[in-house]
Design a protein around this nucleic acid. Structure first.
Lengths: 342, 342
DNA sequence: CCGTCGTGCTAAATCGAGTTAGCACACAGC
DNA sequence: GCTGTGTGCTAACTCGATTTAGCACGACGG
């Protein structure tokens, strides 16, 4: 709380001008400074505990060392905090801080928030959605360094960071293939079109493609694909209950852990055991996956890595548009076993 | 991206000095400005789309309109994002932005992060823990406006925002009493001492006190209290399985939803139905509560409100130390019914 | 006609850095 | 001795706001 040490204080103590002190401390070499002077300045700065005032520097140089994270909503998905943590940690490693703000999907709020950030001379922006979707960044953002996180934008050129959903689908399928399943693999919660998500939710579409590709490679295909209206457990329960009315699956690929939770309940109600009778693999790797009995194998959403990757792109000032895909690793648990020997 | 409109531009267009423009636009009345001039300045600002550069203002006034949120870790608890959202939303309502940073519990990281914030002239701080605990804020923080969020600090005077755990305990107990339970109410996951949490985890201790008080008021008490080592479902499963070996509970109060999840599994394995045979009430109201079958009644942790309340205190510049308790509402669901008529 | 007061504004300093232009001095070469 | 060339530094300006001190003018009283 005591008044800050300024560059002028350092210069005075070292017996040089502010100019000289500034050149030494910002490490610039295009001005000749005698090494003895250099040492004196550095010593003075050290003794006084000098820290440059970044507000003042920002005013002069237009560089504030801050990144703005603008997302539709952090809160609705419980693990989005990980994205923020990944972003904040990486930013900090590069001496940057992160402003976090949410628009709740309101374009007016979005504009005002962005304006507040611009007023504070934020250097660069993370434009994020909390589940993969198509979004239109505000016009105000044009011309600034931006990385799109977990969303795609048609008419906005910027690097885009996305989970590798296609490969994730293949990973899930291969986990079952490796355990010996090949026929009667059913998919719960496949691609799903709505007016809001034409062509299906991005993640769903890609996961499906990955699953199909991996299965096709060994000459097979999903025995059925059941779309679910929504991803709460009860929809998984319904879908699987119905499925069990007319089929006898060897394995289930559920599109997320909540659906898998519902699937577990339905299997249980039908007297089927996981993984003895039916193997289950899922996506997201939420906490739920490790809580279920038996623990659920799930292909993890790389929340933390999405954050770190996006900030790294910003810090390195990569501007070429294009997608960076972050791997989704399989967390293998007890829910996958060999096919039942019926 | 086009070069910003500055105060000088506005002044020029209005045909006045920067001084006059500044006084008009910052709404100060201690200098006499003719109302015709006022109007001209406002019109000019409006036409040019003037926005004050907050970096420049910050340099001059030492007020940047930023709040620093320093927490041990956002990521380990999935709903902590809500705290951030509450804080960010409220900050935005007051034209402030929030820097979010995590220390991962490392005091060196904490110090460096704080220093980065101070270098950017952050106005005020939220010092937060993601589950209620005792923490020691760094010395650097002394003298700045600070609100403690979800943590208590002995030798650091600052307003403190905490969930009202005691009342929450009473709420849970009353929910059972209201349904007719009075005997054979068992507690799963009571107060629990460790070297890290002497006297027990704050929340646990207080919830227990609230439960005891509410039950005592009608002349009863918990039939038993089982401490759990950790809060994963399997510990709840174990605790309840063991309990069922020698007791026949009428209702269970679980210390959080994960334990309740384990409790459900144990009850199910013993052929007991919720709520027909045993009622269950819990704390936290995570997503899990609404996913379980039957849906779990749970006393909600007010994450969002913790964030809003803390920022409100900061913005209003309340400095008196003391605790503000945020209510924890009961989310009543299907897991509570009348006592079984054995 | 002079002093006083109130009104309405401006010039200039300030915050703490970064940056441009150029000065003072030493030394070498002729 | 005079010029030219580095070397090593400083004075002064700049970023875009806020803020202090004070000026110019008209009205009014005596």
């Amino acid at each position: 709380m005591s008044s800050r040490v300024t560059l002028a204080d350092v210069a005075r103590r070292a017996g040089v001008s502010r100019t000289a002190a500034s050149f030494v401390l910002s490490g610039r070499t295009d001005m000749r400074i005698a090494s003895a002077t250099r040492e004196r300045v550095l010593a003075a700065a050290d003794e006084l505990g000098y820290r440059p005032n970044l507000t003042a520097r920002g005013l002069r140089t237009n560089v504030t060392g801050t990144i703005g994270l603008i997302s539709d909503t952090i809160a609705t998905t419980p693990y989005a905090g990980e994205v923020i943590k990944g972003a904040a940690d990486t930013a900090f490693k590069h001496d940057r801080l992160i402003f976090v703000a949410e628009t709740s999907g309101d374009p007016n709020v979005e504009r005002d928030l962005l304006q507040e950030m611009l007023d504070r001379q934020v250097d660069a922006f993370l434009y994020a959605a909390m589940f993969t979707q198509s979004r239109q960044p505000p016009e105000l953002l044009r011309g600034y360094p931006v990385v799109l996180l977990n969303c795609v934008a048609e008419s906005f050129d910027a690097p885009t960071v996305l989970p590798d959903e296609t490969e994730a689908g293949a990973t899930a399928a291969r986990a079952l293939l490796d355990a010996g399943h090949i026929e009667r693999i059913h998919v719960i919660g496949g691609r799903h079109d709505t007016t809001e998500t034409p062509g299906g939710v991005v993640a769903g579409r890609e996961r499906m493609a990955g699953i199909n590709a991996a299965l096709a490679k060994v000459g097979t295909a999903p025995a059925s694909v059941t779309e679910c209206v929504w991803h709460a457990p009860k929809y998984g329960y319904r879908a699987v209950s119905e499925l069990l009315g007319h089929a006898r699956p060897s394995a289930l690929i559920c599109f997320n852990d909540r659906l898998a939770f519902g699937a577990y309940q339905a299997l249980h109600d039908h007297g089927l055991r996981v993984p003895d009778d039916v193997s289950v693999v899922s996506f997201d790797d939420s906490d739920l996956a490790s809580w279920l009995r038996p623990a659920l194998s799930s292909v993890a959403l790389p929340h933390y890595e999405l954050g770190t990757t996006a900030v790294t792109l910003l810090v390195e000032n990569r501007r070429e548009p294009g997608q960076v895909r972050v791997p989704m690793p399989l967390r293998a648990r007890a829910s996958i076993g060999p096919p039942a020997t019926t």
